[in-house]
Write a protein that binds this DNA or RNA. Structure first.
Length: 444
DNA sequence: TCTGGGGTCCTAGGACCC
DNA sequence: TCTGGGGTCCTAGGACCC
């Protein structure tokens, strides 16, 4: 059996641990630039706030309904996530951390009472971190996800499902008729892997509920959609097609992008922003011990500003030799921006992508082109650069981001007029668990 | 004024090769 | 009139996830 455990309204719950005034209130967490709602408390869902809804569309609810908005505090959420995952890991032999707030647990070969395990795990997480969670158990990952969904929904909307399924839902202890009733009462779009587009097509073909899907013809589904949906169907019927992966491979691409607080119209602004994004991406690249074989940049106008002329650039620059050197990556990106920038547009968003990633040490030899002396010199320089990068990362880790930066990106900080892309976070909470100077102070 | 930011996998179609 | 065919690699785009 597999378990799926996830944090309820995770970001909001993290904020509530340290700010009891938020408990019981409609609360949303906002994306960078306080642009859109990326997490909602149950109360916020009830007053109609949608996922990813722009903040300006719901801001009026502050006055009319007591809605509270906070800026995203990813440093806090990341640390709370790690604490939660540590507790979960104690309850099963194998854990796959699937996202910041979810993990799959593999109970294969374990014959514990899973209901009891689920309840104990929830209680321990609540006790040790203050975070509320939901737990689902099923014979496959897709079923565990579905059980989790039903457990959470039973908790949030009493009456839709039997009350005893709330919070911890174990499909393994339900009779076939009970399961059929649950599946008949659940819309097909709630299945993991069935998104908006596929839901529309399925419904057009008469498949509305999870039960309808389970009774569909698998070969026909594969022909009409893809092998992915066929796998989902098999998983719903109890045939496991996806293993719990407790040693995930390194990332295949690293992307950093941002919408700007104010549109950028000059090439220097785009270069500064892209340089910053490439630097961030390169930090993560070195963090996972990889080299990038290509660096991509993109920048685009806003499709929402209908009166603006639209223009997008998206280019990938292959590198002669794979590298994790920020300076090399940044200068390649800057050259690409310079080559493709066009005047007269209001650019609203930009980003950088590192692709063609491979582990350090597997770079292969373009070096043959050089004579052996040049080769040795190049290798020497590169080793020195790598040490420099390592030192830079260590200093930034110890003393906080941007304690040490490359000259080309640091130049921007003294020129505020082109740092308009810097994220505005007017409502961010303190980073209670990761910064000494932001720790919660309790007075007796 | 203001519209998220990360990722993954699959497929179709073109390039290229023999 | 009539212009091979099959395999592989790569890329772009579309679907999904949180």
């Amino acid at each position: 059996m597999y378990g799926l455990i996830d944090g309820n309204n995770f970001y909001v719950s993290c904020e509530r641990v340290f700010a009891p005034r938020l408990v019981g209130k409609p609360v949303v967490v906002l994306s960078s630039n306080d642009g859109a709602c990326i997490a909602r408390s149950n109360e916020a869902k009830e007053i109609g706030v949608k996922m990813a809804q722009p903040w300006f569309q719901v801001k009026h609810l502050e006055r009319s309904a007591g809605l509270i908005a906070v800026s995203a505090n990813h440093e806090l959420y990341g640390d709370m996530s790690a604490r939660m995952m540590d507790v979960e890991a104690r309850y099963a032999p194998r854990q796959e951390v699937y996202s910041v707030d979810e993990s799959f647990l593999d109970f294969t070969g374990v014959c514990d009472d899973l209901m009891a395990t689920g309840k104990a795990m929830r209680a321990a997480i609540l006790q040790e971190t203050g975070l509320p969670t939901s737990v689902g158990f099923g014979a496959t990952k897709t079923l565990a996800k579905l059980a989790n969904h039903i457990g959470k929904t039973a908790d949030r909307k009493p009456g839709l499902y039997p009350a005893h399924l709330a919070q911890v839902c174990d499909f393994g202890r339900l009779q076939p008729q009970e399961l059929d009733a649950l599946f008949a009462a659940t819309e097909v779009g709630n299945v993991w892997g069935v998104g908006k587009k596929i839901t529309e097509k399925l419904k057009a073909g008469g498949i509305h509920t999870v039960l309808d899907l389970m009774r569909a013809d698998s070969a026909q589904l594969r022909a009409q959609f893809s092998v992915t949906l066929e796998k989902t169907l098999l998983e719903l019927r109890g045939t496991s097609c996806m293993e719990v992966d407790d040693a995930p491979a390194p990332r295949q691409q690293i992307l950093v992008s941002r919408s700007f607080g104010t549109a950028i119209t000059n090439v220097e602004g785009i270069i500064e922003a892209c340089s910053e994004f490439v630097s961030r991406a390169a930090e993560r690249l070195r963090g996972q011990g990889s080299l990038a074989g290509a660096v991509g940049i993109f920048f685009t106008t806003s499709p929402f500003r209908q009166n603006d002329r639209q223009h997008s650039v998206n280019v990938t620059v292959p590198l002669v030799r794979p590298t994790a050197d920020s300076a090399v990556l940044v200068s390649a990106a800057a050259a690409a921006v310079r080559a493709h920038f066009r005047h007269g547009f209001n650019y609203a968003k930009a980003g950088a992508v590192l692709t063609d990633l491979r582990p350090v040490g597997q770079e292969q030899g373009e070096l043959d082109l050089f004579s052996s002396i040049e080769q040795e010199a190049a290798a020497h320089t590169e080793a020195a650069r790598a040490k420099l990068m390592t030192a830079m990362d260590a200093l930034n880790h110890r003393f906080g981001r941007d304690s040490v930066r490359l000259g080309s990106t640091a130049a921007a900080s003294s020129r505020d007029e082109i740092r308009v892309w810097a994220t505005k976070q007017e409502r961010r909470s303190p980073r209670y668990t990761t910064r000494w100077d932001e720790m919660l102070v309790v007075r007796a």
